[in-house]
Amino acid sequence: MNLALALQLLIQGILLGGIYGLTAVGLSLIFGVMGVINFAHGQMMVIGMYISYWILVLVGLDPYLSLPLAAGAIFILGYVIQSTVVNRILDFPEAMQVLPLVAMGLILENLALLFWGPDHRSPSTALGLATFTLGTATVDVSRLIAFSLAIAFTVALFLFLKKSAIGKRIRAAADNRLGAQLVGIKVNRINNIAFGLGAATTGAAGALLLPLMPVSPHLGHDFTTTAFVVVILGGMGNLLGALVGGLILGVTESLATLLLPATLKQVVSFGLLVVIMLIRPQGLFGGRR
């Protein structure tokens, strides 16, 4: 086995894993607070990518700079989905909660198809092809920036949840909904904000991914399943677990290309999922529910 290649793949895996982690943290937050799985998560990310793409093409603003706009737009999308749809289904059986969110994913996917057509679009960004070498390995500047911003965004989210008054209310509502209602927390509004924040992370991840891969309307499924695998890996509702799980999956997928063709990436992630379900179903770091 080629050691230099392995190192190269390890670096790539870590860098991509940071973005997996970011989107999975959002999915895990939504699950931790509301107990629902956002099956439109990947599709929301794709919308985030398209928003960044639009801003890049129309205004010329780099995706790293338009990230707050993409995250903000997807925050609003998430807030609206929670307040109009998800708040109504929170007490439904889990199997019935799946349908509205899968439907939401289909709607978003087809809206993307309607607005932007089925073609793959890969915009050229300022730093798109810049690289530097680190020993024997080559590092993409855009991947490094994406990774750093993903980690920064995740840390900011952690601090927000830990320190801010709204963050504490979100954690309280996640801990005990009845208790939260009885101290006077407007739980529905807190749910809206929590879903919005979870969605914003995936929107931000979309903006970060735009320079790295071509965007198309059907990209969403893969990212929903990737985020889902990462969340199970780290423990449902465990945010730190989601971040670490993202890095693990990124590295595993990347290193697996040493042995398997890259097109079998999904075999690796689902293989990892099956192994985790068999030996540690509560996830590496333990879940909330």
């Binding site: 504490k168 209310r169 954690r171 309280a172 005990n176 009845l178 208790g179 009885l182 101290v183």
Partner: peptide, 20 residues
């Protein structure tokens, strides 16, 4: 209303529970 079964927030600290 102090409910049956206490319904405190288990992963929040005592201080945060009171603040809530």
């Amino acid at each position: 209303h102090v409910p049956e079964g206490r319904q405190v927030f288990p992963s929040l600290t005592v201080l945060e529970n009171l603040q809530m």
